[in-house]
Nucleic acid binder design. Structure first.
Lengths: 198, 198
DNA sequence: ATGCGTACGGAGGTAGCATCCGTTTTGCTG
DNA sequence: CAGCAAAACGGATGCTACCTCCGTACGCAT
């Protein structure tokens, strides 16, 4: 079907315009009201009818995935920075934080994300991003394990879940201080207890 | 307010009957469809009109709190068992598991629970249970800390959040195996690295 | 300029929430 | 036992949001 789009004639001007307007408006509404925001309101503010919104993005998840695609560029940028780091443990830590920020971009985002991570439905547009993130985390974990800084029993998926959890809590409106305490707790959980005393 | 109820004339028969029917039906629906279940459907199946439901329980949270009151008896029972234990670290672990089960009784329960735990609104009926649970956790933590089995930096509230997180993930439909890995990760985070080798 | 085909958009049917008020039930009192 | 006042009932109601369907309008290639 995507092949069909590519092979077909070039997209019409109004299609592109509407799609862009919808994405822009949707991102604003997701930011302000969370992922549960009214899609009718998004359509109206983007200056299109509900039908147009649903033709472009058949489900809420599809719209969400498209908006996140934009956001994921930021994540990739941070990833580039992180890969410059020498310390793999530091890299892992920053990567986890980057994921957490990504997950908590919109209030309520972790729920559909987790639903997609289960990934029984291969047509769920959020499934693919999740898989990529888990794989990436796995690599950071392995690198840090080679340096002996992270317990060998830990897997990327575990920390993916942990980051998701923290993002979820953040989305419920918890203060920053308890959040930081939880992050510390988790870090204590995955870090190898090292014998070097400072 | 409970004093007011006690001082007033005895409650009418239909009131008690309807309240019981609502609670019973609501619990079934929460179990089957999560906390977001249709209240209209609950009312209809309980054989009352919507108005009656909303008079008894003005908000979804109020109904939820009332249903949880029933469930909390089970928690108290487990608490009694746990307090028989000699090992405070074991007690803490079992308590965390008990809370987690309580939180994941209904899918979607952790969200309103966290909202109540923030507790700006003193009239939120879920706030009080949360406070009690946090306090209880704090005591288990302190007991285990006295035995040197739990890091001194850990607070009850931290583990309350952790238990909530795990319950949330469970509610999203994740398998048991990744959940258990996460629990292990958290346990590694709060346990004092002890030097005693078995 | 014209016509074809794609995309638009709003009307409309469905579902759930929360409220209000005329009616019914209850249990006390004479 | 009958009658009455208070209390509770319940459904009709207005609202918001979801999602679909189809007559219409618009963009583009000729």
């Amino acid at each position: 079907m995507s092949a069909g789009e590519l092979r077909g004639r070039k997209p019409r001007a109004d299609v592109q315009r509407n799609r862009a307007a919808l994405l822009e408006t949707a991102q604003r509404h997701f930011l302000q009201h969370g992922v549960g925001t009214s899609l009718e309101a998004v359509a109206k503010e983007a200056g299109v009818g509900p039908g147009t919104l649903y033709r472009h993005f058949p489900t809420r998840e599809a719209l969400l995935a498209a908006v996140l695609q934009t956001r994921s560029e930021e994540l990739v940028a941070r990833q580039a920075d992180i890969e410059q780091l020498d310390d793999p443990a530091e890299a892992l830590e920053q990567w986890l934080r980057a994921m957490e920020d990504y997950f908590s971009a919109f209030s309520g985002l972790p729920d559909p994300l987790m639903a997609a991570a289960r990934a029984q439905e291969p047509d769920n547009p959020l499934t693919i991003p999740c898989d990529i993130l888990i794989s990436a985390t796995d690599e950071y974990v392995r690198a840090a394990q080679l340096g002996g800084r992270v317990r060998v029993s830990v897997r990327g998926h575990d920390l993916f879940l942990a980051a998701c959890s923290v993002a979820w809590i953040k989305g419920t409106g918890t203060e920053e201080e308890p959040l930081d305490r939880l992050r510390t707790l988790i870090a204590s959980g995955y870090r190898e207890r090292d014998n070097i005393q400072v």
